[in-house]
Computed example of a mutant assay.
Amino acid sequence: MDEDKRITLRLPTDLHEWLATQAKSARRSLNSEIVHRLEVERDAAMADAESPSPRFGSSCPAPQESDSSPT
């Protein structure tokens, strides 16, 4: 990061606890964990925007149920 910005972030308690647990298991600070997750999502969003095919909601038809009703 070239320049850091400070923000105040309000999180629900359960989300804060989950993120703190994830950060600890990844041996990162809570701040680093949040930044890491945001960067991963940003990179995925940018890759999706550049991709010629959509990530979700493709034009392939949904699988149909087979007619295996008992006779």
Results as ranks from 00 to 15, higher is better:
W18M: 07
S69E: 13
A62S: 15
L19Y: 03
H16E: 09
I7V: 12
L9A: 04
S58V: 04
S68P: 02
S25W: 11
S53H: 07
R37Y: 00
D43Y: 03
M1D: 01
L19V: 05
T13D: 15
M1E: 08
A49I: 12
Q64K: 08
E39C: 01
M46R: 05
D4K: 07
W18H: 12
D48I: 08
E50L: 14
L15V: 07
S59P: 10
P61F: 03
K24D: 06
G57R: 13
K24G: 03
K5E: 00
K24V: 01
L30H: 01
W18L: 15
S29D: 03
T13V: 13
K5S: 02
A62W: 08
L38W: 04
P61G: 02
N31I: 08
N31L: 10
C60T: 13
Q64M: 13
G57Q: 14
A45H: 09
E17R: 12
L11Y: 02
M1N: 04
K5W: 04
A20I: 02
E65R: 14
F56K: 13
F56C: 07
D67R: 11
A49T: 13
L30Y: 00
R27D: 08
A26Y: 03
D2S: 10
K24L: 05
K5Q: 02
S66N: 11
K5V: 03
S25L: 15
E17Q: 11
T13R: 13
L15A: 10
S25P: 01
M1H: 04
D14N: 15
P70C: 04
A45S: 14
S53L: 14
P52W: 08
D2K: 03
K24F: 05
A49E: 12
T71Y: 07
P61V: 06
S25K: 15
R42Y: 13
S32Q: 14
R10P: 02
D4F: 08
